[in-house]
Write a protein that binds this DNA or RNA. Structure first.
Length: 265
DNA sequence: ATCTCTGTTCACAA
DNA sequence: GTTGTGAACAGAGA
């Protein structure tokens, strides 16, 4: 489920473990989840203290004492949760960190998510030093958006919005939401989009979802496309609209839009 | 059985 | 060299 605000929500689920010592580490039997790291390497977290969580777009970074940094991505179906201190790992609990009072669980039944461990005294690992500005960062300027739209002028707006190098944290529903709120068809060529308007809508969507979904998984406004885009039979929430929403595959991903409010190009 | 899916990466085409 | 596309990855639910 995870896009920007969902990732922030999940990262915060480990907060009950803050300032606690990791007593024991469980790693599941699927090496793919750990990519190039031998799963046994994660045992180094035992004996450290969990200090801090942060996110950048869809990436999560957890700081532990002794210069250890655990980074992770939730893929399509990843989730973080806590369990009782004796939590027995399920088949899809790839990493579990046990403290005296809780278990910090990284669960992912598909395995598009991943974790890695870096050692780096006091500063975040190298990959976290050179990331593009997030959408709510002041450096995410209209000029930056304008440049991006020009470079990818022929790419359909919806598809381009999924580019994490330019729009960190935007996923499938957020990209559809941006198109909906701009009243632009998802196939609109990026080069024709007004950069200031795009930036404004992007920031508003990030801001609101960080105040709702990221805090307690509460619903975004009923005027958004998001609550209606999943199921068959969804109707456009636009004032006096109510048109049946359309779902079609665009560049390999499901796009959803209102054929009246976002007419074809 | 067949299809779907809130993501990323890779090979390859243009 | 850069940009754009579809397939592959894996597993559960409809």
């Amino acid at each position: 489920m995870p896009e920007l605000a969902e990732v922030a929500y999940y990262a915060a689920q480990w907060n009950p473990g803050l300032s606690q010592k990791i007593l024991r580490v469980h790693t599941g039997p699927k090496p793919r989840f750990f990519r190039n790291t031998p799963p046994s390497a994660f045992a180094a977290l035992a004996g450290t203290t969990y200090r801090h969580a942060r996110t950048h777009g869809k990436n999560m970074l957890f700081e532990f004492s002794d210069g250890l940094w655990l980074s992770g991505h939730l893929g399509m179906t990843g989730e973080l949760l806590t369990g009782p201190p004796e939590h027995p790992p399920t088949a899809h609990d790839h990493l579990v960190l046990y403290t005296k009072s809780t278990a910090l669980i990284f669960r992912d039944f598909r395995m598009f998510g991943c974790v890695r461990l870096d050692e780096s005294p006091s500063t975040p690992p190298a990959a976290w030093q050179s990331l593009p500005p997030e959408i709510l960062n002041p450096q995410f300027t209209t000029a930056r958006v304008a440049g991006a739209l020009q470079r990818h002028a022929r790419s359909p707006l919806k598809a381009f919005l999924l580019d994490q190098a330019w729009f960190p944290g935007v996923g499938n529903w957020m990209a559809d939401e941006v198109c909906y709120q701009l009243q632009l068809n998802p196939a609109t060529p990026s080069g024709t989009v007004d950069p200031a308007a795009l930036r404004k809508v992007l920031r508003a969507i990030c801001q609101k979802s960080m105040k709702t979904i990221a805090v307690d998984w509460s619903d975004p406004p009923a005027t958004w496309l998001m609550p209606y885009r999943w199921k068959d039979g969804g109707l456009c929430p636009g004032k006096n609209c109510g048109t049946a929403l359309v779902r079609e595959t665009l560049r390999g991903r499901t796009a959803c839009w209102c054929p009246v409010c976002q007419p074809g190009v």
